[in-house]
Design a protein around this nucleic acid. Structure first.
Lengths: 127, 127
DNA sequence: TCCATATTTCATTATTCATTGAAATATGGA
DNA sequence: TCCATATTTCAATGAATAATGAAATATGGA
């Protein structure tokens, strides 16, 4: 990931209203939410929400798809992961200041006992 | 962590020159770097660098300490970890889209076999 | 005390960016 | 085709921010 793209993603998240929208979409998961639903949930004008979604979208953090009259936005989780990787790479020169807590987050979020691995989780059954 | 503080930290990182400074300090580790050394390394005027360090500092991402005539800046790794936690919390509703890659980062960075823990690593020798 | 080094503070300037009202576009159904 | 719904685009306004030159502050040593 290029520093320029990382800045773009960080800038997109670095604004209270957009961060709220982003987190809402994170909670919504891959299924996503319609633009109108997002506007209603965040009590923001439709055109303002549209602009916010555009910024997140241009940054590559979310993706849009049309469903009838609605446009559904969903987080691009792989892109988010890439940003996290960028922020944490080079973090260790044998030290664990960043990555130990990071590992703790991962462990708390997806306990290894549950079988969370690096590969795409939806594909665990081979055929 | 409050959304407001998260925005402050993200804003501090959401600028190319500051992100560069931040990453330089990440590589430097807990030992940190003097303001002058940072300015030289990033080929930036001293006062500009000072302003960048102030922003990162106010955001709580780095901390300053004086050493003689120099002021040494070092990353507050715990604060960085808190930001990462904030960005990834609520990421799973039983799903692993974000946290599986996150776990991969942690694993690649600090393999569990090496015994990485949450405590301060610099203190391993007691006296 | 006087001086050189290291860094910050201040005021200014130019740029970037969020929000809003109004209008435009696209879809689905009567 | 006509209409209502859903969303975006456009232009304008106001606010926040980065970089710079000049001056100020703090430290250590002669």
């Amino acid at each position: 990931m290029e520093p320029h793209d990382a800045v773009k993603r960080l800038s997109a998240l670095a604004q209270e209203a957009r961060l709220e929208v982003f987190r809402l979409l994170v909670k919504a998961g891959p299924q996503g939410l319609a633009a109108g639903a997002i506007a209603r949930a965040s009590k923001t004008a439709a055109n303002t929400t549209s602009a916010q979604l555009l910024v997140l979208s241009n940054a590559g953090l979310i993706k849009a798809r049309r469903d009838g009259r609605s446009i559904i936005y969903a987080v691009d989780f792989a892109a988010v992961a890439k940003l996290l990787v960028f922020l944490t790479e080079d973090c260790c020169g044998g030290r664990t200041e960043i990555c130990a807590p990071l590992a703790a987050v991962a462990a708390q979020c997806c306990p290894p006992s549950k079988g969370a691995r690096h590969e795409a989780p939806a594909r665990s059954r081979r055929r």
